[in-house]
């Protein structure tokens, strides 16, 4: 009978579940987080999270290809339906063939995993592009984001390297998470706190200047709002300085 491996919901926990399935040479395994209610008809077992086992899986993946652990992490972050099982199939494919499974897109699991990783990677890049800081206090910048996937931890290193000389907070209000950079290190804060409720100030001079500039660069003879919307979908505009707040709810594109 098939076995369902339950993990604690963390990425490390997931890797331990993979480890467990391999250790037991279980080829009809399913993996699921504890918080998920499934209707699968099979035996269950809860896997304890042990950093050492997680590390061994990561190392094994790295031996197949240096970029493989990163892909697995991105795909896991997508939290798509059935992604945990697809990931198990994907990892198994790699170890069975002793080859980088990232190229085996003809395989259903691999195609699903690569698609999920591509989507999460795309979302990550979108926030490198569209995140906007506001000066909330004389020495503190704040940005709000509302990503479709949980990419907060992925984007912070980019901003920490770039804005090493300023204090900033990036908040994902929907997931009630915030990342803090204090010029030396960054940390995640989860749950409600003062940070989450700190209001953003009204737009100031720099915001007005930026909007003025943004209007001036568009060439009227080449107006093409459909193209613009393809690049900046409406869902990102809520938190972007150059677009009117709430305008994305107005009726669709006219040009």
């Amino acid at each position: 009978m098939a076995m369902l491996y339950r993990y604690d919901g963390s990425f490390e926990g997931f890797l331990c579940a993979v480890f467990c399935a391999f250790e037991r040479r279980d080829r009809s395994a399913f993996i699921e987080a504890e918080s998920v209610m499934s209707l699968r008809w099979c035996e269950e077992m809860t896997v304890a999270t042990e950093p050492d086992k997680a590390r061994r899986v990561t190392e094994g993946l790295r031996r197949l290809s240096p970029r493989l652990p990163g892909t697995v992490y991105l795909a896991w972050l997508s939290r798509m339906d059935g992604i945990d099982d697809a990931l198990l199939g994907f990892i198994r494919l790699g170890f069975d063939r002793r080859r980088d499974p990232q190229h085996m897109l003809y395989n259903g699991s691999a195609a699903k995993v690569m698609d999920a990783a591509r989507k999460v990677g795309g979302e990550q890049h979108r926030f490198l592009q569209f995140l906007r800081f506001t000066k909330a206090l004389p020495d503190l910048y704040v940005a709000d984001i509302a990503p479709a996937y949980d990419v907060l931890a992925l984007i912070v290193p980019h901003f920490a390297a770039r804005f090493a000389d300023m204090n900033f907070i990036i908040r994902d209000k929907g997931r009630r998470k915030a990342a803090l950079w204090d010029r030396t290190r960054w940390q995640m804060v989860e749950g409600d706190s003062e940070l989450m409720s700190l209001p953003l100030p009204e737009d100031g001079e720099i915001e007005a200047l930026w909007r003025r500039y943004f209007e001036s660069v568009a060439i009227p003879e080449r107006k093409n709002r459909r193209l613009q919307q393809r690049f900046v979908p409406l869902r990102f505009r809520e938190n972007m300085t150059e677009f009117d707040k709430g305008a994305h709810r107005a009726a669709g594109v006219d040009g």
Binding site: L128, Q129, A161, R162, A164, M166, V217, Q228
Partner: peptide
């Protein structure tokens, strides 16, 4: 590369930060 504790760096592939009404990137 940025200087440690300094401001700014460049991204090898480049980053577009917005698109204006004519659909060209900013």
């Amino acid at each position: 590369q940025g200087r440690p504790g300094g401001l700014g760096n460049a991204h090898m592939a480049g980053i577009c930060h917005s698109w204006s009404e004519d659909g060209r990137c900013v």
